[in-house]
Design a protein around this nucleic acid. Structure first.
Length: 268
DNA sequence: AATACCCGCAACCGCCGTGAC
DNA sequence: CGTCACGGCGGTTGCGGGTAT
C-alpha cells in the first residue's frame, strides 16, 4: 500500500505563485508563525499543497533572504564546503546566511560546475580531471570523501550499533558515548568535527555528542565520537575537546578555526 | 522581425528520517 | 514492532527571458 498523497492535487494550483498568493502566505505566517504546513494552505485560504507553501516561504518569501549575485567569497566558500560535504546543500546553505539550499544548488549547477570544469577540475571530486581518471586510488578516495560527508559509512555504522550502545536520556535527549576508529590509518592534517547538540539557547550545561574526522589529502583516517560537557558559553566550543595531538591551528575553510562546529551551521 | 536555441531559476517530485500512536 | 503523517532534502523538470542565427 502506497502512502497517501500529501494533498488533494487535483484541486490545487501549480506552477508560478501569484502576488496575491504570496501576500496571503506571508501574512498568514507573520501572524501564526511557520509550521503545520499540511494545514496551512486551508487556514491561509490558499489552493496550494503544504509542501509548495513551505518551499515558497523558505526559498523566496522569508524576510532574511539575501538574494542578488553571489560574491567571490561566497563562491569560494561554496566550493570549499562542497569539497567536504558533497551535495549536502542544506548544510552548505547553513554556512551562508541569507542563502537557501535551492539557490546554492542552482548556482552550483549553473555557474560553479562550469567554472571548475573550465579550470580542468572535476566538480564531483574537486580533483584535476586527468588525475582523477587514471588511478584506482581515486575510486578509493572518492569513497572515503563521500564517507566524510553526511550520508556516511561512519554514520550508518554508528546507527547500526546504536541499539548495543549504552544510552541515557537527559532532558528528552538521547546521549551516548562511543569511540570509533575507522580502518584507514593515515596521519591527519585536517580535523573536521561534527557536534550534535541541543538547541543553542539551552545547551550551556548539557552534554552533547561530538564526532571528529581526521583527513589528509582527502583521505579519512580515523573518526571518533565522544560525549562532551559543554563549557561556559563565553568560551564557545572551539576549544572544548582536544583529542588529537596533531591538532595544530588548522585554518578550516578560511574560518580560522581548527574545528568546524556544526551548531553554527543552523539556519538563522 | 521571426524563429530556434540556450540558460537560469522557481517549483515540483519522490524518497527518507523521525516521532506519534 | 508496524504503520502512518509530516517535514526535510536532493534531484529533476519546465517555464520564461535572453541571445544567436
Amino acid at each position: 500500500m502506497g502512502r497517501s498523497p500529501c494533498c488533494e492535487k487535483e484541486h490545487m494550483n501549480k506552477g508560478a505563485w501569484t502576488k496575491e498568493e504570496d501576500e496571503r502566505l506571508v501574512s498568514y505566517i507573520k501572524s501564526h508563525g511557520e509550521g503545520c504546513w499540511r494545514s496551512l494552505p486551508r487556514a491561509a485560504g490558499l489552493l496550494r499543497c503544504g509542501k509548495s507553501c513551505r518551499l515558497r516561504w523558505i526559498n523566496y518569501l522569508r524576510p532574511d533572504l539575501k538574494r542578488g549575485n553571489f560574491t567571490h567569497d561566497e563562491d569560494e566558500l561554496i566550493v570549499k564546503l562542497h569539497s567536504l560535504l558533497g551535495n549536502k546543500w542544506s548544510l552548505i546553505a547553513a554556512r551562508l546566511p541569507g542563502r537557501t539550499d535551492n539557490e546554492i544548488k542552482n548556482y552550483w549547477n549553473t555557474h560553479i560546475k562550469r567554472k571548475l570544469l573550465s579550470k580542468g577540475i572535476d566538480p564531483a571530486t574537486h580533483r584535476a580531471i586527468n588525475e582523477a581518471k587514471n588511478s584506482d586510488l581515486k575510486k578509493k578516495e572518492d569513497q572515503i570523501v563521500k564517507d566524510v560527508s553526511f550520508g556516511s559509512k561512519f554514520e550508518k555504522t554508528e546507527k547500526s550499533r546504536d541499539q548495543k550502545q549504552n544510552k541515557h536520556i537527559r532532558n528528552g535527549l538521547v546521549c551516548k558515548e562511543e569511540r570509533v576508529v575507522v580502518e584507514e590509518n593515515i596521519c591527519p592534517d585536517l580535523n573536521l568535527e561534527l557536534r550534535i547538540s541541543p538547541p543553542w539557547q539551552n545547551q550551556s550545561h548539557d552534554p552533547y555528542t561530538a564526532s571528529r574526522f581526521y583527513m589528509e589529502n582527502g583521505m579519512e583516517c580515523s573518526s571518533e565520537t565522544v560525549k562532551c560537557q559543554t563549557e561556559d558559553s563565553s568560551s564557545i566550543s572551539y576549544s572544548s575537546i582536544d583529542i588529537s595531538s596533531s591538532n595544530v591551528g588548522y585554518d578550516f575553510l578560511g574560518l580560522k578555526t581548527r574545528i568546524l562546529d556544526f551548531r553554527s551551521l543552523e539556519m538563522k
